[in-house]
Design a protein around this nucleic acid. Sequence first.
DNA 1: TAATCTGTAACAACTTACATTACAAATATT
DNA 2: AATATTTGTAATGTAAGTTGTTACAGATTA
Lengths: 152, 152
Amino acid sequence: MRVSTQFSIAVHVMLMIAGFPDEKITSEVAAESAGCNPVIIRNVFAKLKNANLLITKSGKGKTTLARPDTEITLWDIYCAVESEETEEIFKFHQNTSQTCMVGSNIHSLLAPHFDSAVAALKADFSKVTLADLKEELYDTIRSKASEDEVFG
Amino acid sequence: MRVSTQFSIAVHVMLMIAGFPDEKITSEVAAESAGCNPVIIRNVFAKLKNANLLITKSGKGKTTLARPDTEITLWDIYCAVESEETEEIFKFHQNTSQTCMVGSNIHSLLAPHFDSAVAALKADFSKVTLADLKEELYDTIRSKASEDEVFG
DNA sequence: TAATCTGTAACAACTTACATTACAAATATT
DNA sequence: AATATTTGTAATGTAAGTTGTTACAGATTA
């Protein structure tokens, strides 16, 4: 199982926007912070926008959250960049023998258990809001008592 | 996120072995039931053997479970064919800016939440044993009242 | 009008997944 | 002992997905 870096990048940019609402966070700025190409950020922007989590405007460069950070969970961000469909997450082997008792039933037998696993993942990620992450970030910053620049 | 077909194939062969202990299940037989190449099965065999779930012997062709099916869970099978390491499952973007408050903290901030998600997955898959799946299979077969051959 | 920024298309490099052939090593059968 | 069977594993090819990059059209701001 593998979740692409787009998920952590998506959380990264959402946290920048939620945590520092006065900063102008362009794809260029976010790309430097995330250590990747600005186009990667723009693609993530597009997915987050498509999932109604983010508001972006061409030429403006001022991205804002589409709703309060208390109402955006890790699961929301996950779904924006990755599929939540069980069939997409757990790939079944195809062409199973339909004359074999196991081959003809394995799919319908496993499907509910895979659904349950996805539900468990959803439940766990749904517990964490962007506001939670923001507070954890603020705590970390405070505890480090740092005077570094916010972005660099 | 995507789990390879090896997982469903692994469950498939384990279920064949647990469900029909009197049949001689070679990589060839399993491959025909699973609809894939025998070498794929042998590689899965090797991983299951390495995880101490299966006993195989060259030339023998009689594979058996390494322990009772009541003590083998979906999580055990999952771990045999996929990594259970959080860092392997959730890929982080690298090269984050260390002078940015978000960039320098995103990893340590997200890691515990990713660990929690993996734990949720583990808890869910650990609830289901091979014996459970076997019973569900038997129920299905009984309810279908089929007189087909067991393997075909 | 000029500068800035998002939105996308196009393409290359890299990695991973899956299928297949081939053959050595171990075991069973005769 | 000889032969057939089966696992174990290396090597290779192909397809698909991921990430990085260039390029440019379209929207917005100053």
